[in-house]
Design a protein around this nucleic acid. Sequence first.
RNA 1: GCGGGGGUUGCCUAGCCUGGUCAAAGGCGCGAGGCUUAGAACCUCGUCCCGUAGGGGUUCGUGGGUUCAAAUCCCACCCCCCGCACCA
Length: 769
Amino acid sequence: MVDGKEKWLVSMDAAERLTYLNRDVHVEHIIKGRELIGLRARVPLVNRDVPILPAGFVDPKNGTGIVMSVPAHAPYDYQALSDLKAGIHAAGVVIHEYASIHADILKIEPIVMIESEYSKDGVPASVVIKRYGISRQDDPRLEYATNELYSHEFYKGRISSDPSITMEYSGMSVKDAREKVRDDMLKRNLADTMLDLAKPVRCRCGAECVVKILEDQWFINYSDREWKRLAHKCLDSMQILPEDIRDEFVYVIDWLRERACARRSGLGTKLPWDENWIIESLSDSVIYMAYYIIAKYARMLNVDGIDDRFFDYVLLGVGDPSSIAESCKVSKDLIEQIREEFLYYYPVDSRHSGRDLVPNHLTFFIFNHVAIFPQELWPRQIVVNGSVLMDGKKMSKSLGNIVPLRKAIREYGSDAIRASLLISAELLQDADFTLDMLKSIREKVERLYSICIQFANATRDKSNSYNRVCEGSGGGYGQEHGYEHEQKQEHKQEDEYEYEDVWLMSRLQHMIKSTTDAMDRLRVREALNNLLYIMDQDMQWYLKRAKSKGRGDDEIASTIIQFLDARVRMLSPFMPFICEEMWSVLGGKGFVSMAEWPKVTPSMINSTVDEGESLIMHVMEDVEKIIKVTGMKPSRITIQVAEAWKWELYLRILSIINDGVTNYGDVMRMLVKGSSSGGSDSIATYAKSKPEMVKRMIESILSTPPESRLSRASIGVLDEVRVLSDAIPLLEKEYNCRVEVMVEDSSSSSSSIVAKKSALPYRPAIYIA
RNA sequence: GCGGGGGUUGCCUAGCCUGGUCAAAGGCGCGAGGCUUAGAACCUCGUCCCGUAGGGGUUCGUGGGUUCAAAUCCCACCCCCCGCACCA
């Protein structure tokens, strides 16, 4: 008996769920489904009697637990009917008890009432079942067949025009007819609604979820237009990292509407004006950053005495502290202190959270701040991150792919774990954490640590004043470091500083800049990549160059330590513990965590040396390519550098390109025009006589990084002989043969191979014998 | 359906906004060599195709277009992932 009016026949489960929907349910009889078999039921609306059939696939937990059989259009029903006709019930079991109605069952024929592509070849359900090759009602593919047929008929099907069956719905689209039938039945009181879940939902505790109607529900009205406007305004002024996610916030602000903000059970704060309700946690968490600040004072306060006026003053600065102190029984000083502390922290500079909270918490956070606080206290930034995957999969106990934190820290150390998490992904991506990565990071860091020890020792052996490198005031690379290099040059013999030293210090400035930029944008992965890998490469090159000249550790320790000093400072946020250790080894004062972040010292950037070293690297690359392709073992390598007129031409083209003219024809025209407009005659002549040279130079310049084009222009003619001669020890050691460097002599280019591709500036001709 | 993100060289992933630095960074995997009693680890080199001179060819989901020049800009199409609620 439902609502004291009607007798309903539903599953036990449905009877229970109806009670949650605030229906008055009385269970009068419990009937076994089998008792109904063979009886007949009347179909509402059409008023026809139909037999009641058994079916194994009907879920008593779904809806009323009773379904209408539509064998023409529901693959499940069709298959079940076929099975019954063959004397088979669910799961292939032959059921004899239905023998009495078998004759009736045999008479049942599917009635096709939807026309679509599928109805052309007979009964649609049968068509689709045959296509899938299904022959039993427990075949899982029935699910796919059902989906396919349902969605096709729903969007494209029409109700057939047989008025005896389809009544006034003939010809309507299924989509429209479905709505109309429902409405008509409700209108004529032939049906009722029962709220239910589309799919079974389970709670984390394992229990099945049901739909429950709550009375007197409280809502937060996020639909309010003015409120939305303010939220947008706040978002527009905020920094969102990464930017990609901003559009999602925009959408959510518009999409959000009334949200139930309280519930009847669970943990949480009681709703102040209705103690029967508990504030739903996502609605409660919107300004708890503000609460964090005053939380620690909670015990010092007379909580019972506190009312809205206290909060108005602390959070909004409204009211008179003296009178509030009196009425709330809190000391005025304390109130002032809390207010002061609140203003110290607020506005929120950065809220950092997971991307799954964008459609709720993070957006509520914006909404509620703009609702409560004046504009100057609105949040400034939101940072959104992805989640952590383990070996490419979501971590879960059932997959067994979790490593307990304590265990991981014990085995690998927290530094390596932090770093491998940070290096595995940028902000928004899911970070794929692997043990391989963890191990490799750990080893990388251990090596770095031993390098610190190695060079710290080298310095101590020499017992000179190099240690001061790490003793900047406050430990920082402040302005004081700006003159480091020049000052040293004065104090020491000129020849103690080699090109590689200058180069390494110059590279360091680039790395500081690039890493700082990355950190400013919270591109942690990029920053860490610089610190761990790129700077390592630089150091390797430096060591290679220095060692080839026979310089000992003590001679290069000063430079290396300066480099390490900055590296450790920047690495410290990523791996704080080992960095303190390295800092101490390097002779730093205090804690590296308190030391200043390095600053770029422009005077230490030396583009001539930068270009020089990259010239050496390119020459080596080319030599290696030649050796690889020819398969020869060099006995002598001759490097011929471009002669003066080529430099003249090159620099002219470079400046044309730097002015934005990159097209060959245009460049050529400008080169030639140069002579008539008072420019250099010789350049015009060269250009005219060697057009292919011009072409090669343009190509070469265009394949150079733009910054490098500019610095090359400012350098002018690079003394390539001097640069390359400095690298002769390295080259001879690498290739184990004699190496000579000279300016090319076009008048007597003896070697045909060299002549074929003669030297360009920054692109010497190489001859290997 | 609505909204967001994405398809890159064996894999994962940078680059795309601001076109030429791109045959394309880094990591993993794989191969060769070094080290080692051996292995693990580590180091060096290689890892689209062709090539006995630093070169050439074909690539960045598909098809068009713009440009001297496209992974990058424009248009169309195909495919994949995520969210869509009162639940943290």
